[in-house]
Computed example of a mutant assay.
Amino acid sequence: MTTLADMGFDLDDFLTRTLAEDLGAGGDVTSAATIPADARFDAVMRSREPITVAGIGIAAAFFRRLDETVSIQVAFDDGEQAERGAVLMRLQGNARAMLTAERSALNTLQHLSGIATMARRYVDAIAGTGAVLLDTRKTVPGLRLVEKYAARMGGAQNHRLRLDDGVLIKDNHVAVCGGVAEAVRAARAANTGLQVQVEVDRIGQIEPALAAGADRLLLDNMAPALLREAVALVNGRVPLEASGGVNLDTISAIAETGVNFISVGRITQSAPAVDIGLDYVLSPS
């Protein structure tokens, strides 16, 4: 399985930037003013709703960054399902450090687990159809690597990570080039060595796109009846991806048309953070 490090994620840089954003120039003035420097606490991190976990290692790393001696027991791996009330992590360490790291750790874990949880719902909705869920580049600027990682932890496959990962000709490219066939021919002539995918939004564009050398088609905002027509026309010549207007109420019918892939921007763009809490208990003396 591809890890965050394999994707080029710099954990140390992420921790540094996130903590700097939260601490500001003066640091955690509340904890410094109210908590003795040597106070120690036990903490239990619990899920307050059923979730698919993502980012648990990053969350733990925030606490380790501020207290190298902290004791952490992680109970779930990324990609695993946790029920409401499940203990995700147990910690014992310096109270000031834990309180200072708490929000950065929880924000990250709640956001990424929210993406993974939503992705899992979509994956479950199309189980058995043969269709594969894809994410998109609709991500929060600066968080693409971790958000796409979270989508994968929920069972989705990653589509393009960056613009240089593949040629994807969209409607505006087609408009500038003067047509689907013209755009595909231009992309083939560029000899990028990359797969050429083109967006089509009507049946009449399919044959010209294939004749021009498209490797894959993105069927945009087509109703299930039109998708079935497209699947029959292409007849397995290239993979087909459905996109646009996809939600939990529509994805099952879309998957049943026979398309190979379904891309859903909302799993990274609109996933709500899940509810995870960190409860502290005074360490026994």
Rank of each mutant, 00 (worst) to 15 (best):
I72C: 08
M118T: 09
V70L: 10
K138Y: 12
Q73S: 14
A131S: 14
G85A: 08
E102C: 01
R90N: 10
M153L: 12
Y122Q: 12
G154F: 06
R121F: 03
R90P: 08
A151H: 05
R96I: 10
F76R: 01
Q81V: 15
R120A: 15
A151P: 04
V146A: 05
L134I: 04
L143G: 03
L88F: 00
A156C: 11
M153I: 04
S71K: 14
Y122M: 15
L145E: 07
Q92N: 14
N158F: 12
V87K: 04
A75H: 10
Q157E: 15
A119E: 09
R137Y: 12
T69Y: 09
D78T: 00
V87R: 03
Q92C: 13
Q73D: 15
R144E: 07
A116L: 05
R120W: 08
R137M: 13
E83H: 06
T117Q: 04
L99P: 09
N94E: 12
V123T: 13
V70I: 15
T117C: 06
L106I: 01
G114P: 02
S104I: 03
A86W: 04
G154E: 10
D78F: 02
Q157C: 12
R90C: 05
S104Y: 05
S113V: 00
R137A: 14
E102G: 01
D77N: 03
V87L: 06
V146H: 05
T117G: 03
S71T: 12
A82F: 02
R120Q: 15
T129D: 09
N94L: 09
Q81R: 14
I115P: 04
T117R: 06
T139C: 11
G155F: 08
A116Y: 07
M98R: 10
M98I: 05
K148V: 04
Y149L: 03
G93V: 05
A125K: 08
T108S: 06
T129E: 10
A86K: 02
